[in-house]
């Protein structure tokens, strides 16, 4: 009798466990190690630093080990990807648009999940996720700021390439500037097809844009940004007064010499944290990622050079964007971005 009771209990328990297993499927492996790869050192006060810092912060928050591979350049990173996979990374964040061909290849080869940028069409559930992000809401605020503070009614946008994330910010800046001053002229210049580290090119092009009348430059360029900053510091605007610089992604206040008006600062930690969560939950590659004003993953940097009244106005617009009263479209296509710009009048 006792034997039968024990046997029945055992069989019932086994059946219940079996049913539960069938119902929930195999258990998801927990992420223990993530790796982040950047083309330049994570100390550029911009894209690369944001990638590295955010990965470390996300790792700390989630109790995950973080391996960083910085300064990898813009060439073939397949050996590094394989090495990181070999070191046990459960997720490799390939933090450069130039890596979005190699990373998926190595993901297929090794089975290690990768996160890439600027290639949403490459996503594969469980293996490849895209985190093409846009700070266009913040750039819209920067555009309003620039239009309000421009003395020459001409602002410039200088970029070292046209990846989707930057295109949407260029568009956001132009829309914001136009909203604040419909008559403002917006000059747009690309340094090169992928001139991310071309500091000399950044300086050369920025000097020309300033000479064409712009007194505020919205610059997006990784390493080339420092060339833009150098041009701002050494080239007065056409009215003889100083020009101003508005940066993106990072905060260069600590190295500013009096020319940094603001920056559209990103925080990628929520994105990377969500990625780890998604990988743990089996949603990786099936969901998208966003940054924005509401959770402060995009903020406009306040500096001492922005008048208080202007800042108050900017914060009102920020709230209006969050509330949905102001809609800033995310425009990722380069052709559409260029269509938003005005040009310098050759007849003048």
């Amino acid at each position: 009798m006792a034997y039968r009771a024990v046997r029945n209990t055992f069989l019932t328990t086994m059946a219940a466990v079996g049913a539960l297993t069938i119902a929930t499927g195999p258990a998801q492996a927990q992420v223990e190690i993530i790796a982040v790869m950047t083309p330049e050192q994570g100390t550029d006060f911009g894209w690369n630093q944001q990638g590295v810092d955010a990965a470390r912060a996300a790792g700390e928050a989630m109790g995950v080990e973080v391996i960083t591979a910085e300064g990898l350049g813009y060439g073939d990173v397949r050996p590094t990807l394989r090495e990181l996979a070999g070191e046990g990374a459960d997720l490799i964040i390939a933090h450069a648009s130039g890596y979005n061909t190699a990373a998926p290849e190595v993901a297929h080869e090794t089975g290690v999940a990768v996160a890439i940028v600027d290639t949403p069409e490459a996503v594969e559930p469980g293996l490849i996720a895209d985190y093409t992000l846009s700070g266009h809401d913040g750039a819209y605020l920067a555009g309003i700021l620039a239009a309000n503070m421009s003395r020459t009614d001409t602002v410039g946008i200088v970029v070292s390439g046209e990846p989707p994330s930057w295109n949407s910010q260029s568009a956001g800046f132009a829309l914001g500037a136009r909203a604040a001053n419909p008559d403002i002229d917006i000059i747009y210049a690309v340094i090169g097809p992928a001139a991310y580290a071309d500091a000399a090119g950044g300086r050369r092009v920025t000097e020309s844009v300033i000479a064409a009348g712009a007194d505020i430059i919205f610059g997006q360029g990784n390493g080339s940004t420092f060339g833009m900053l150098q041009a701002i510091e050494t080239t007065p605007a056409v009215d003889g007064e100083q020009a101003w610089f508005i940066d993106v992604i990072g905060d260069k206040s600590s190295i500013d010499t009096g020319f940094l008006l603001s920056s559209v600062v990103w925080d990628l930690e929520p994105v990377y944290t969500a990625m780890i969560d998604d990988l743990n939950n089996g949603d990786f590659g099936a969901v998208g990622y966003e940054i924005g004003l509401e959770d402060n993953s995009v903020v406009l940097l306040q500096t001492e050079y922005i008048p208080p009244a202007t800042w108050t106005e900017l914060m009102e617009v920020r709230q209006a964007i969050i509330d949905g009263a102001v809609d800033v479209p995310a425009i990722f296509d380069a052709q559409e971005v260029r269509a938003l710009m005005t040009t310098v009048d050759a007849s003048e």
Binding site: R203, R204, V205, A211
Partner: peptide, 24 residues
């Protein structure tokens, strides 16, 4: 706006050409 044919802009283009050409 100073314009595309302003002296300052044209000079910046010529100077830019020199700056880009000399290292090469």
């Amino acid at each position: 706006m100073s314009g595309l044919l302003s002296d300052a802009f044209l000079i910046s283009l010529v100077a830019g050409a020199i700056a880009a050409g000399i290292p090469l």
